[in-house]
């Protein structure tokens, strides 16, 4: 295991060191100490390494991640795992605004709560939240899954496309064109796998599914006044 003291060695050296790891590196486990809410920790990784951040992070931790597993042992600031392509990001505490925004793939697991705009414009990422998510989550979500073991805030899934949202608790309000949908066997199967991947102690039968009503896809003359 490699240990990196962020306070002593600096952010640029950290990210350059992690970027230098090849796919077949032997240095597969990294511990980052003294993160102290710093921005852009472990961004742009592209190797199957495991990075443990020992504390809370600031803006954009693990952004653009590919292949790597980034584990934040604390809370994460705005934009954690933004635009993730693959790999896994785990946040032990809470995540601030727009967690997993625009993510194309991989898995984001938040053990606490996520704040507003979680999964905004997501494009294939799976986001699994043990607690609650805030308002405007999954705005314009295109594909992928959000699992919420707690409650969802206002305007869930506003103007969403083909992403799926599974919520166990209450939904404060649904956004435009987002509706509750039937839970069919294939959804139970999918959710079972997601809950297992996220380490959630919840039964798939306790969840409701939400998604697009597909009414905003095409121009509708009756809606002309709203455009």
């Amino acid at each position: 295991m490699q240990t990196f003291d962020l306070e002593a060695q600096g952010l640029r050296e950290l990210n350059a060191t992690l970027h230098a790891q090849a796919t077949d590196t032997n240095q597969t486990v990294w511990d980052i100490v003294n993160p102290k809410g710093s921005h852009a920790i472990a961004v742009g990784l592209d190797a199957p390494i495991e990075v443990n951040v020992k504390g809370s992070t600031g803006y954009y931790c693990a952004g653009m991640n590919k292949q790597a597993t980034v584990h934040v042992h604390g809370s994460a600031g705005p934009g954690v795992a933004e635009n993730m392509m693959s790999g896994t990001v785990i946040v032990e505490g809470d995540a601030s605004q727009y967690a997993g925004a625009t993510g194309h793939g991989g898995t984001l697991i938040i053990k606490g709560n996520a704040s507003s705009r979680c999964g905004i414009s997501m494009k294939g990422i799976d986001i699994i939240v043990h607690g609650n998510i805030g308002h405007m989550s999954a705005f314009m979500a295109q594909s992928g899954n959000i699992v919420v073991c707690g409650d969802a805030g206002d305007a869930l899934g506003d103007s969403c496309y083909e992403a799926r949202f599974f919520v166990r608790g209450s939904v404060k309000s649904l956004g435009a064109d987002c509706i509750e949908k039937e839970m069919r066997p294939e959804h139970i199967e999918l959710l079972t796998e997601l809950l297992e991947r996220g380490g959630c102690d919840a039964k798939p039968e306790e969840f409701k599914r939400y998604g697009s009503a597909r009414q905003l896809y095409n121009f509708d003359v009756d809606n002309a006044a709203a455009y």
Partner: peptide, 17 residues
């Protein structure tokens, strides 16, 4: 930002929200 709070006494045990 959380950065502003990191050197306060007992921050690791604080309730942060």
């Amino acid at each position: 930002e959380y950065r502003a709070l990191v050197n306060l006494p007992g921050i690791d045990e604080a309730r942060v929200w």
